[in-house]
């Protein structure tokens, strides 16, 4: 189990494509560089979309886990 101390939890459950990455891009600025956002999503596409988003936007996916919903941990890098 991946466990990171998140500075902020972003609940995006129930939102389909493209909303998870859109919301993420709007929220990433709300934490400081180096801080971690824990995203909760029910969109299975997020598992590949968030790494793609992070690579393009210069941020980092630290890890993810699937349970009742998907958790993705993202570190703001710039």
């Amino acid at each position: 189990m991946s466990d990171y101390a998140a500075d902020k939890v972003l609940d995006l459950k129930g939102l389909p494509c493209p909303m998870p990455v859109v919301k993420m891009s709007q929220e990433i600025g709300s934490v400081d560089v180096g801080q971690i956002i824990e995203v909760h999503t029910t969109d299975p596409g997020s598992l590949s979309d968030f790494p793609a988003w992070a690579e393009t936007s210069g941020n980092e996916v630290l890890g993810s886990e699937q349970g009742e919903f998907i958790k993705i941990f993202i570190k703001r890098n710039n």
Binding site: C17, P18, V21, V22, M24, S25, Q26, A52, W53, T56, S57, G58
Partner: peptide, 12 residues
């Protein structure tokens, strides 16, 4: 519109 908003979200 989905591609456009997705691309903008990715910093493009």
């Amino acid at each position: 519109m989905i591609i456009a908003t997705g691309a903008a979200a990715m910093g493009m």
